[in-house]
C-alpha cells in the first residue's frame, strides 16, 4: 500500500485538508474523506455526469480527476450551490418544473446547468440539450429538465437586468 498524501484545497469556498490514496479520485475524496455525498458515482468512467463538479471554474467529472490534482484548487459541488438556506434559482426551478424523479442525476445536472448559464446566460433549447448531453438521466426523458434550465436562465437574466 502506498502512503496517503495530504491535499489542501478550497471546497465550496472553505479551505479543507484531507488525506488521500494516490490513486483515489476527486469523487472518492469528496464522498469518503469530506463526507460530501451529493456528488454521485454512476459509472466511474466519465460517461454519466452524476459526479459533475466545477474545478477552478471548469466543469469536470470528478471521477476522472485524481484527488491529488485538487491541491491548491477551488472545487464547487452541489452542496455549495444554495447560499445559506436559500436555493439557487436552478434548484428552485427544478422543484417547480418537477425536473427530477429519482434525483440521483440531479446534483450533477444542476452543477452542469450552472456552468452552462455562467458561459451562456441565454441558451437555446439545442444548446441546453447539447451542453447537458454528458449528464445521463434515465427517469425524466429530459423534457422537464430542459424546461427548468431555460426557465432559470430567463429568470436569471431578469435578475441581472
Amino acid at each position: 500500500m502506498s502512503k496517503r498524501t495530504q491535499v489542501s484545497a478550497v471546497v465550496n469556498g472553505d479551505p479543507v485538508d484531507f488525506l488521500t490514496d494516490p490513486g483515489a479520485t476527486l469523487l472518492d475524496a469528496l464522498r469518503d474523506e469530506l463526507g460530501l455525498t451529493g456528488s454521485k458515482e454512476g459509472c466511474g468512467s466519465g460517461d454519466c455526469g452524476a459526479c459533475s463538479v466545477i474545478l477552478d471554474g471548469r466543469l469536470v467529472c470528478s471521477c476522472l480527476v485524481l484527488a491529488v490534482e485538487a491541491e491548491g484548487r477551488r472545487v464547487e459541488t452541489i452542496e455549495g450551490m444554495a447560499e445559506g438556506g436559500r436555493l439557487h434559482i436552478l434548484q428552485q426551478k427544478f422543484l417547480e418544473h418537477a425536473a427530477l424523479q429519482c434525483g440521483f442525476c440531479t446534483p450533477g445536472i444542476l452543477v452542469a446547468a450552472k456552468a452552462l448559464l455562467e458561459v451562456n446566460p441565454d441558451p437555446t433549447e439545442s444548446e441546453t440539450r447539447y451542453w447537458l448531453a454528458g449528464n445521463l438521466c434515465r427517469c425524466t426523458g429530459y423534457d422537464k429538465i430542459i424546461r427548468a434550465v431555460m426557465d432559470a436562465a430567463a429568470e436569471l437574466r431578469q435578475v441581472r437586468v
Binding site: 460530501l36 451529493g38 452541489i78 444554495a82 436555493l87 427544478f94 440531479t106 446534483p107
Partner: peptide, 23 residues
C-alpha cells in the same frame, strides 16, 4: 394540483442519501 414534492429540496441540494451514501 402540482405542489413541490416533499423530498425535493433534499434531492436538489445533494442531501438525499442513496444506497452508497451511508457510512
Amino acid at each position: 394540483t402540482r405542489p413541490i414534492r416533499p423530498d425535493g429540496v433534499d434531492k436538489v441540494t445533494g442531501r438525499a442519501l442513496y444506497g452508497a451514501d451511508l457510512a
